[in-house]
Design a protein around this nucleic acid. Structure first.
Lengths: 205, 205
DNA sequence: TGTACATCAGTGAACGCGCGTTCACTGATGTAC
DNA sequence: TGTACATCAGTGAACGCGCGTTCACTGATGTAC
């Protein structure tokens, strides 16, 4: 009764357990058996819900993209105009990454060998990309004379924000590098992203 | 005679074998035993030259940073002024990454748990950073009125270039995303980096 | 309302595998006299 | 130049481990009549 034979919603419980393992012990500790153990279930039970390990990883990564989108949306809501919205989305991206580093690694790393085999994952990744490119497009539309290619601008923004996120996650950058003055991660990323954002306003000479 | 008992330079041979495994089968296949096999030596021989697996990985990662520095230097040599040199270094960074994706992952990933334990690795990573920050500083010095903080500018440049490198490596970006027009990786990264580079020339309003 | 039975979601034992590391060893090399 | 011996750089067997996956199974649930 306290441990019914049927779990009820094991699929989601497994995804949740996997995310907990990522947060606690990192991506190196994420095995199918560990996930089953943490969900309190035999090690073969996951096979009722996922074809194999990679299918579970793909579901976890998809959940990660949903978290990323949530972080970006929350920050974007507070921004009045497209210019500040671009920065807000970027800060949200970095905020998600620093709070969920191992999820970020799974989302972008080589553990999921064949992403095309997981349409759900591709769909939600596209959604995140669309959010960024849409906001950049709005931003560029403000400025009739802007000559910046919107695709290049989107790729550049994404690169900047993604690189900053990973350098922070990998501890290559720490937030008190700026001349010994300690500033938070959010503030540092805001400054860095703002510097870049200005490039979008450039007009031809 | 063809297989002498003493190898001669097993240490370097092991590093070379590890790099080959990275290039061929990726970071997931990089085990100590696989390295020994590829070097044609018993699986315990590496312990004469490295304390443990992580020590070998650190040596391989250090070699990776040397390769990165080499790529950046080569491109920088052809650049006459500091402005084009900044772009050249960035393109070199991305070029290294796309040619040696698994090495990049090892250099920045979580496989080497404690980087402070490997001073050689830290030294050569600092050297790469110094190369970038020095070039950015020269670039900013051209422009008396520039108000950009050099540390922020360096971190921003590094982020952009690092993010672009990883998105390419992870196949999140492919070089014919730009409206179906196929352009090479080098050309794409040059365009993206150039867009960013302009932000460094900004003057106060 | 009660029963037979198909289906579903779990279990537990077992498989074969590759891993990092240790241990006692041995062959090759170099050095002191 | 020759020999004894210490040191160095390899070997091969073995350890214990955790992994992904398969298999035949069983308990619980739901549905047809």
């Amino acid at each position: 009764m306290s441990q019914p034979y049927h779990h009820g919603d094991l699929r989601h419980a497994l995804i949740a357990a996997a995310i907990e393992i990522l947060e606690i012990d990192g991506i190196g500790a994420l095995s199918l058996r560990a996930v089953a153990r943490r969900a309190g279930v035999s090690q073969t039970a996951p096979y009722r819900h996922f074809r194999n390990k990679e299918a579970l990883l793909a579901a976890v990564a998809a959940e990660g993209f949903r978290g990323l989108i949530r972080h970006m949306s929350e920050r974007a809501e507070g921004a009045a105009d497209p210019a500040t919205r671009v920065t807000a989305i970027g800060v949200g991206y970095v905020a998600f990454a620093t709070r969920h580093p191992a999820q970020l690694r799974l989302m972008f790393g080589p553990e999921i060998q064949s992403k095309p085999d997981h349409p759900e994952l591709i769909g939600v990744a596209r959604e995140a990309y669309a959010m960024l490119s849409g906001t950049i497009a709005e931003r560029l539309a403000l400025d009739d004379a802007a000559t910046v290619d919107p695709v290049i601008a989107t790729l550049a923004s994404w690169s900047m924000v993604h690189g900053l996120a990973l350098l922070l996650v990998d501890r290559q950058i720490n937030p008190n590098m700026t001349g010994g003055v300690e500033i938070g991660t959010d503030a540092l990323s805001a400054r860095i992203i703002a510097l870049f954002g200005e490039a979008l306003t450039l007009r031809p000479d």
